[in-house]
Amino acid sequence: MAYFTQQLINGLTLGSIYGLIAIGYTLVYGIIGMINFAHGEIFMIGAFISIIAFLVLGILGVTWIPLALLIVLIATMILTPVYGWALERVAYRPLRGSPRLAALITAIGMSIFLQNYVQLVQGARIKPMQPVISGGFEIMREGSFTVALSYLQILIFVVTVVLMVVFTLVIARTELGRAQRACEQDLGMAALLGIDVDRTISLTFVMGAALASVAGLIFLINYGVIDFYIGFLAGIKAFTAAVLGGIGSLPGAMLGGLLIGLIESFWSAYFTVEYKDVAAYSVLVLVLIFRPTGLLGKPDIEKV
């Protein structure tokens, strides 16, 4: 039971990261129907901007951890979206209205470009960071096995939940969200009502990048090492999560992220670590066979 609980906690932590990235995939897919394969790289850039921000704060002598974390969070949530915005502006907007395949190939190209850009600018070696938050609660003990819930994990849950609630509210309640939902259903008609479609799409990329940057920060402080290549696997996993939950559905992306995180951590715990990715993707395959629209996705009815 204790072992199970511990895996549950670990799985949810991992799932939070996937969920935050998956929202970026699902938002962009919802609005322009393309898979932004460079989104994993945005997450990676978010992690890099975070580590740089920590270093700068260290040099400036900001050592009070809560303040430092807050500043880093704000810095990465402001700077990373600049990349998301530029990505859309430079690579995707000129291709709007061209065949889907062109946008897809461009996305893969941008993904490779961003990886190499970071590799060139930051070097190829892994970047380690001291743990910033240590300690936690011992919530259960069974024999010699203790279940730990670290302060860091609590922080991750809280940040994830708060962000998801805020972004759900933005999309459900605010004027921008309304415009996004309108664009999602009919871009041309939205423009005819005076909605600036280009700006709405840009802001969607910005929102997705902001969430991915937080995932990058969480990844950094949770695992303590990053390199220029972390975006690839995390991106693919988050994409899997978005498809699993039903691509285009916001709650689906969160649910899918948590499920992939849980599957991975339980599989590693009870079976083999080596095959955890196989397990995650197998679930994806099963879902796609029996429920092609994902868990919470609505079937896309073709209009005549």
Partner: peptide, 10 residues
């Protein structure tokens, strides 16, 4: 009908 008033609300 609300989304049609996007610009005013924005």
């Amino acid at each position: 009908l609300i989304v049609a008033q996007h610009n005013v609300l924005m």
